[in-house]
Design a protein around this nucleic acid. Structure first.
Lengths: 335, 335
DNA sequence: GTGAAAGCGCTAACAC
DNA sequence: GTGTTAGCGCTTTCAC
């Protein structure tokens, strides 16, 4: 706790608190000499402003919230870096909240933001989030919100996404071009915006490759490794097993590799695989993994930049913003 | 911004602000009926306390800071989850700061904590941090600090670490037991506590295996992928190249695999490899990677638990706390 | 069991 | 260019 306050500085300098405050904020009203005196003493005494007194008075916190499902995923780790890089430059602080894919938790977290704790919010919604009422409430309370990656289509505010449909489409077409006739799609929560888009891209890819819908298979995976392993194993044990797989999120890659190993199936010989992932280690997997790699850092950065515009510029129409940053299909050995 | 204040509630109920405040905080002085009335109206009007007014008055922020070098590493991602899990239960908020391995940045971040922005700090120091003066200052200002993973030995406060010496020793002994005669150790910043311990464990392991110091080789790696790749390539091109490698941090794994592939060297045939990493994908690498896996989640959790004890319990001697949680050597194919 | 009053540290209006 | 005053919204004496 810094025990030195503006009053202390004022007393020592024979000035009023108001003048010191103005000098510290470099107000145009204050003479250069005074500013220097104040700055010098503040430095000497190790004065650090109390952020909460300032927040209370000015009604802004210089803080943003980042609401994420998890941080285990490499996508979100990279996104945090992008966000932090711009928050730091802006002199903002970053509060982090994890929903653990729970809608209830997400609601509770957002609810308390109406208190003015943060000046803006970056959010990637949970798997369970199918409607955005809780987010609309926060926006109605006057707090700018920017979605990134996992959005709510029914909430009108800025959205930073990647081209999920196109990525999935490209992945599917790549597999069929390699000769796949029967492609399984490993999905997560079907309510998620990214799931919907990716699934659509997959289906369109199949259609455009003249693969009948009967030859498609969508497996709804869970958060539990063992359960996913088992589902994938069941899938690959069937007599008409797929010859191609698209793993729609990072965490579904390991179980596929393991099942193939355990079932003695060769990738890409028996089964070709493409995963959505940002893991650097994709290229040292056995075999090197063909990936859809998302612009995670840039998405985080871009979301933060837009959020700050929304916070700082009064006549910036945050609500209409929509940025799509392309993902990349990186061909390696698995497909 | 919640526009409903305690005064509003008080006015509506014909009570004083003081009574409402006490009722909301469930003070023993207040009658049950009053409490219920207040709770009911607060709920109805959507009252949310202004956290900064409360922080200003009570001189506590219900917020902790987590200061990390990066969040790209799987270790720190998992640690954040551990930290968040306990902060959530305690009703605390988590501010995150990245130093990007810069000492200057770390100093600046810590400096402003003297303002009372946070009630406690969890920190894993940067590569460049060789002395802890900036941390001592914060502690002197009365703010509890807990180190986790990367510590400053010269700062007397709680430290949560893993058994770096033993892990490295075990890794080295495992390699020599497999027949390695010449083991290289890929290091990062030699000033870092974890680097020092791991290097010592490596050297002791060599000594106990009767391998002369002349057959050891410590390569100081950097933050740049290309540079590391080149250094490792140079290392493995030498005629007396090592037959074993210990990668002391996660990010050094990919370049080793790539160099081996490019030089047509077989792992583990020509070179055995053990890496410090928490990546789930270790077991689907080519070949599956033998790892030292750290208890990242538990370290984060444990650090947070101890920090909160330091914050909440006055007669808890935070400074003397020291917890070591063991890492695990997981034998797979690479060594 | 409740109220009045003071004040946390800072800043914005309004003076001069 | 600087000072005075009045709060921001909450909590905490100290009364009764």
């Amino acid at each position: 706790m810094s025990v030195v306050t503006i009053k202390d500085l004022a007393k020592r300098l024979g000035l009023s608190a108001a003048t010191v405050s103005r000098a510290l904020r470099d107000s145009y009203e204050i003479s250069t000499e005074t500013k220097q005196m104040v700055a010098k003493l503040a430095e000497e005494l190790g004065y650090i402003p109390n952020p909460y007194a300032s927040s209370l008075r000015r009604r802004k916190s210089k803080t943003i919230a980042v609401v994420l499902p998890e941080v285990a995923d490499s996508f979100f780790s990279l996104a945090i870096n992008g966000i932090e890089s711009v928050a730091k430059d802006k002199g903002y602080h970053v509060l982090i909240y994890l929903t653990h894919e729970s809608f209830e938790r997400e609601k509770a977290i957002l609810h308390q933001f109406k208190s003015g704790r943060v000046d803006g919010i970056l959010i990637s919604v949970s798997e369970e989030t199918s409607s955005g009422g809780h987010i609309k409430e926060v926006i109605a309370a006057g707090i700018p919100v920017v979605f990134f990656d996992r959005i709510c289509e029914d909430v009108e505010t800025a959205k930073i996404i990647t081209d999920d449909f196109e990525s999935s489409y490209k992945a599917t077409r790549h597999l069929t071009a390699q000769g796949c006739k029967r492609i399984a799609y490993l999905s997560i929560s079907p309510a998620l915006s990214i799931s919907i888009k990716r699934t659509e891209g997959y289906q369109q890819g199949l259609a455009d490759s003249n693969i009948p819908a009967t030859e498609s298979e969508i497996i709804l995976c869970e958060n539990d490794f063992e359960a996913n392993y088992q589902m994938i194993k069941d899938l690959l044990k069937k007599k008409n097993r797929p010859d191609g797989i698209i793993a729609s999120v990072e965490k579904l890659t390991p179980p596929v590799y393991l099942v193939c190993r355990d079932l003695n199936l060769s990738i890409p010989g028996d089964i070709k695989l493409i995963s959505f992932t940002n893991l650097q280690s994709a290229l040292i997997l056995d075999p090197p993994l063909t990936t859809i790699t998302q612009p995670a850092f840039d998405m985080g950065k871009s979301a933060a930049v837009i959020l700050f515009k929304g916070i700082e510029k009064k006549n910036f129409d945050l609500l209409k913003q929509r940025v799509t940053i392309s993902s990349e299909l990186i061909k390696r050995v698995s497909a």
